[in-house]
Amino acid sequence: MPKYVIERAIPNIGAVSAGDLQAISQKSCGVLRDMGPEVQWVHSYVTGDKIYCVYNATSEELVREHARLGGFPADSVARVVTTIDPTTAEV
């Protein structure tokens, strides 16, 4: 299944409480349950003013539909074409 990186601009998200992050996560998981297995949330990175999410999905449209149904911004959705890491540098 293709992997996507989603950028969500949310001012001051890095300062919200653990309870608020839990509520956001619960909302996301509820929407995903209703949508079925064709879209899956892997994990997210929370920074000061943005959340970067990694999803597996059969299409970009499903990722955007999840955002719409959940009321989350999806400022950028990019399909991952490959990954690199320090082992990529090895001969």
Results as ranks from 00 to 15, higher is better:
residue 55 Y to K: 01
residue 59 S to E: 06
residue 65 E to P: 01
residue 15 A to V: 06
residue 2 P to N: 11
residue 58 T to A: 11
residue 70 G to D: 04
residue 10 I to R: 03
residue 37 P to M: 03
residue 36 G to Y: 04
residue 91 V to R: 08
residue 55 Y to C: 02
residue 15 A to G: 06
residue 9 A to V: 12
residue 60 E to M: 10
residue 91 V to Q: 07
residue 28 S to C: 08
residue 2 P to R: 05
residue 32 L to Q: 00
residue 30 G to K: 06
residue 4 Y to F: 15
residue 24 I to T: 07
residue 78 A to V: 10
residue 76 S to V: 11
residue 64 R to Y: 00
residue 24 I to P: 01
residue 16 V to F: 06
residue 67 A to P: 01
residue 82 T to P: 01
residue 76 S to P: 00
residue 83 T to P: 03
residue 65 E to H: 00
residue 12 N to R: 11
residue 68 R to T: 09
residue 31 V to L: 01
residue 63 V to P: 01
residue 15 A to S: 12
residue 68 R to C: 00
residue 47 T to A: 15
residue 18 A to F: 04
residue 75 D to E: 14
residue 51 I to P: 08
residue 62 L to Y: 01
residue 57 A to Q: 03
residue 57 A to P: 04
residue 84 I to N: 04
residue 32 L to S: 02
residue 51 I to L: 09
residue 9 A to N: 12
residue 80 V to D: 03
residue 12 N to D: 11
residue 16 V to Q: 04
residue 44 S to V: 03
residue 72 F to L: 15
residue 6 I to Y: 02
residue 3 K to I: 14
residue 90 E to T: 09
residue 53 C to R: 01
residue 12 N to V: 04
residue 20 D to S: 09
residue 29 C to S: 14
residue 72 F to D: 13
residue 64 R to I: 03
residue 2 P to A: 10
residue 54 V to E: 12
residue 68 R to Q: 11
residue 4 Y to E: 04
residue 42 V to K: 13
residue 89 A to K: 09
residue 49 D to H: 14
residue 76 S to Y: 09
residue 60 E to A: 14
residue 64 R to K: 15
residue 53 C to G: 14
residue 77 V to M: 05
residue 71 G to A: 06
residue 39 V to H: 03
residue 14 G to V: 00
residue 79 R to N: 04
residue 3 K to N: 10
residue 86 P to Y: 08
residue 66 H to A: 15
residue 81 V to T: 12
residue 74 A to T: 11
residue 16 V to A: 05
residue 63 V to K: 03
residue 6 I to A: 10
residue 8 R to S: 14
residue 30 G to W: 06
residue 66 H to D: 07
residue 89 A to Y: 10
residue 21 L to F: 09
residue 50 K to H: 15
residue 86 P to T: 14
residue 36 G to H: 05
residue 39 V to A: 13
residue 89 A to M: 15
residue 12 N to K: 12
residue 48 G to M: 08
residue 73 P to G: 05
residue 43 H to G: 08
residue 45 Y to N: 09
residue 52 Y to G: 02
residue 4 Y to N: 05
residue 28 S to V: 13
